[in-house]
Simulated scan of single mutants.
Amino acid sequence: MKFVAIVGTNSDRSTNRKLLHFMRTHFAEKAEIEVCEIKSLPAFNEPKDKTPPATVKELSDKILAADGVIIATPEYDHSITAALKSVIEWLSYTTRPLINKCVMIVGASHGMLGSSRAQAHLRQILDAPELKARIMPSSEFLLGQSLQAFDDQGNLVYADKVKELDECFDEFLLFVSITNQLLKTAKINTDQNKKFSWKQAAEEGASL
């Protein structure tokens, strides 16, 4: 399987980046993971023609071609970063590559909670009509005290967390395999979902 792993911050010192690079190496025999940065993507500005910038289009194409997506989010003020929210807004407003795409959410934080509130918020966001991602249920990977979590070689040093991550990733592999097969069998109309419009929904609601 091939996965796109999104670093959910533009910080150069993020431990979420370290987590994704560890996952790429640690799970190399199980899946191909491409770590993608969002630092170079512009802030969302709602273009009238709904055409994404080249950098956003490149990320969108990678998501479309992947079997699934992994998002590592830090927690700022009880939520995800503005940079990650901007990227999600670009994707939902333009190409909508996350519709029916399997997503695993992980997160690291300097404190004890491991970005738990940001992960919960991200789940809500990804369930929006313009996104409709297939989020792996009943599974959270929360890496607290992340400043001390990695050695100089980028290895995750907490043995219990490595074991937990192994279990979460194996669940994700199974989730992706089953979900993608069900979506293929059910022939759910992804193209129709990509045409969702709040304006059209409001007009249809007003006519009832």
Rank of each mutant, 00 (worst) to 15 (best):
D160W: 04
A206E: 00
K101Y: 01
H78I: 10
E171C: 11
M1Q: 02
T51F: 07
L91F: 08
Q181Y: 14
Q192M: 15
F22S: 01
L156Q: 07
Q145G: 10
L183S: 07
T9F: 08
L165T: 00
S115F: 08
R17A: 09
K161M: 13
I125N: 01
P74A: 13
E75W: 04
N189S: 15
Q119N: 05
K62H: 02
K18F: 12
A28E: 15
K194R: 15
C102M: 04
P52D: 08
I125C: 06
D49H: 03
E164Q: 12
H21K: 15
N180Q: 12
L131K: 01
M112E: 14
S60E: 03
E34D: 10
K184Y: 06
Q124I: 04
K39I: 03
K194Q: 15
V162E: 03
T179K: 02
F150D: 11
E140T: 13
A159Y: 06
L19Y: 03
E29K: 14
A206P: 05
K195S: 12
K48E: 02
K39C: 03
L84V: 04
A31M: 06
Q145T: 02
A206F: 06
Q192A: 15
I125L: 10
R96N: 11
H121V: 14
P74E: 11
S11C: 07
V7E: 04
V4S: 02
K30Y: 12
L64R: 08
N10H: 04
K50C: 04
A202L: 13
K194T: 03
H110K: 07
A72N: 06
T9R: 11
S116L: 10
S197V: 08
V157T: 11
I63L: 00
V7T: 04
A159N: 14
T81E: 10
R123K: 14
N155G: 13
R24I: 07
K39E: 02
A206S: 00
G68K: 05
P52A: 08
K161I: 02
S146Y: 09
M1V: 05
A43F: 11
P53L: 01
L113F: 13
E37H: 04
N193E: 15
L142K: 07
A206K: 09
T25I: 08
S14R: 14
V103I: 13
K2R: 10
M1I: 03
W198C: 08
L143Y: 02
G111K: 09
E130F: 05
F44V: 05
L208N: 07
A31G: 10
E29N: 02
G205M: 13
C36S: 01
S86I: 04
N180K: 14
Q192N: 12
A120N: 06
G107S: 09
V87M: 07
T81I: 05
S207Y: 08
N189K: 15
R24T: 11
E46A: 12
A28V: 12
T185E: 10
I80E: 05
A149P: 06
G144D: 03
C102A: 15
A120W: 09
F172A: 10
K199H: 07
V157Y: 08
G114A: 08
R117C: 11
V4R: 01
I88K: 02
K184L: 05
L174A: 01
I178Y: 09
E204R: 11
G144Y: 10
K184C: 05
L182Y: 09
L98G: 05
S40G: 13
I38S: 04
A31H: 00
N45I: 05
D166I: 10
A186Y: 12
D166V: 09
G114S: 01
L91A: 03
L122I: 02
A28H: 06
D77W: 09
L183E: 14
